[in-house]
Amino acid sequence: MKIKRTNGEIIFGVVNTAFMVVMAFVTLYPLWHVLMASFSVPTRIMAHRGLLFWTLGFSNEAYVQVFKHPLLVRSYMNTIFYVLVGTGINMVMTFHGAYVLSRRNVYFKKHIMIMITITMFVSGGLVPNYLLISDLGMLNTPWAILLPGAIGTYNMVMMRTYFQGIPYELEESARIDGATDIRILYQIILPVSTPIIAVIALYYGVGHWNSWFNAMIYLTDRNLFPIQLVLREILIQGSMDALEDTAINSSWKAVEETLKYATIIVATVPILCVYPFLQKYFDKGVLVGALKG
């Protein structure tokens, strides 16, 4: 049955569609601007004012310099290291923790749960955390980046909720056959949990990729800096000196103006390439957490 649309509804439909097109444009434009600027000729970008819809001339020199610059390459490698190892630690800790919290008939589970819930509302704060890392001797080591956030409580609770939704019959038969909890975890729970594992790994991965604050307060050795922290120096503090320190030659100086655009693209594109593939999982993942409230 097709219901006839009133004039008002048709007009609304057109306006609404137009609004969505504008939304999409406004969302995309800033990154488009950066992308176009990164491939432009530096001197022309310098003189340019206003919107930018296409490259001004063409030059890929900025990208060549990004991949040649010691500090930029170094920090990019560091970021990849933090993402891979950090997310690995996150997943091992979160996966096992969530399993414990999803078990039935575990006497101390409620105590553990209370202990964890408290930390969602109370935290030590900046200085006590800093003193802890300092006392542990982790200042200026990669551990300061990798360990303090090893478990995201919210992510763990989300994963627990997923585990609780797995039909009990699945593991019951294994239990009758004498499987231990550990075997059940790896051979039954793990294989059916790929969607939640993918989503949570993405959350952690994006978190590590984009993080800079811990690096700023815990690291002074520039060789350990992640790319975001170097980006902060270039973009926010507006200082290209950050690059000067370690530059062997100053060929990047010629492309100074477009170099920052290219760095943004290089630091942002990997993540933007990953997320659409996982999009089908998001809606589920976000929902599970939300329902738990």
Binding site: L28, N210, I236, Y275
Partner: peptide
């Protein structure tokens, strides 16, 4: 519209 969520705070503020 999901996309900007994955852009880092540093890059957003840099822009």
């Amino acid at each position: 519209t999901y996309m900007p969520h994955f852009v880092s705070t540093v890059v957003v503020c840099g822009m």
